[in-house]
Amino acid sequence: MPASYTPKTRDSVEHEKTNSQSLDTNLPAAQVTVRHVLDSKGRDLFWITPDTTVGKAVEVLRDKRIGALLVRDEEGILLGILSERDIVRRLADTPGRTLPQTVAELMSKEVQTTSPGESLVRVLRRMTDGRFRHMPVMEDGLLIGMISIGDVVNYRLTALEYEALKLKQLIVG
């Protein structure tokens, strides 16, 4: 072995710590709830009123870099959800005339919601079966967040990264 070669040992290399890996992200998949995802992603809510134009809604979606907006009345009551998919369908049906329309004309009015304590596996199944990607989170009748399939996937990927790291540490010592 050349004299310049020094094998790497556990204490010879400075390891970078990450914030994405924690004991909370390593719960068994069946125990993970919507609350875990909300706690990791934040609870920012973006909403519009039903009389907002689709053009304005598109700007909010673009500026906030999100795929859906909650539609609430002035008192904060959830009336519907407007997704990129809703907009694309309407663009195909009314080319050149979609942006001046109101959100009320094309939002999804029957919105399925979840609670913070619902199992993430169950929520993912509901989203997959219902073919929608965003779900508002309600607690005690109040809107407290929204999760997307992307949030769920990101949460699980972080958990898998943590599991892989722990296995590597067990193997390497």
Rank of each mutant, 00 (worst) to 15 (best):
P2I: 01
A3I: 10
T6C: 07
K8G: 00
D11R: 11
D11N: 13
S12K: 03
H15F: 13
N19W: 11
N19P: 04
N19V: 11
S20V: 10
Q21P: 03
S22C: 12
L23A: 09
T25K: 02
N26Y: 00
L27I: 06
L27Q: 14
Q31R: 13
V32M: 07
V32D: 02
V32W: 05
V34I: 15
V37P: 11
D39I: 04
S40T: 14
K41V: 08
D44L: 06
L45D: 07
F46V: 15
I48K: 01
T49I: 10
P50C: 03
T53K: 04
T53S: 14
V54K: 07
G55H: 03
G55Q: 09
V58G: 02
E59D: 11
K64Y: 09
K64M: 13
K64V: 01
K64T: 12
K64N: 12
G67Q: 09
A68P: 13
A68C: 12
A68N: 12
L69C: 00
L69R: 07
V71D: 00
D73Y: 02
D73V: 01
D73C: 00
G76P: 06
G76Q: 09
G80R: 00
G80E: 04
G80K: 01
I81R: 05
I81H: 04
L82C: 04
L82Q: 05
L82T: 04
L82M: 03
S83G: 09
S83C: 05
R85Y: 08
L91N: 05
T94P: 00
R97M: 12
R97Q: 15
T98H: 03
P100F: 08
E105T: 09
E105P: 03
L106A: 06
L106Q: 08
L106G: 03
M107K: 05
M107G: 05
Q112A: 11
Q112H: 04
S115P: 01
E118I: 08
S119A: 14
S119G: 14
L120T: 06
L120E: 08
V121P: 00
R122L: 15
L124R: 14
L124S: 15
L124E: 15
R126T: 11
M127R: 07
R131E: 14
F132Q: 09
M135W: 03
V137I: 06
E139K: 10
E139V: 07
D140P: 09
G141M: 10
G141I: 11
L142A: 11
L143G: 01
M146E: 10
S148Y: 05
I149M: 14
G150C: 01
G150D: 11
V153L: 13
L157D: 15
L157V: 14
K166L: 13
K166I: 08
K168Y: 11
L170W: 10
L170Q: 15
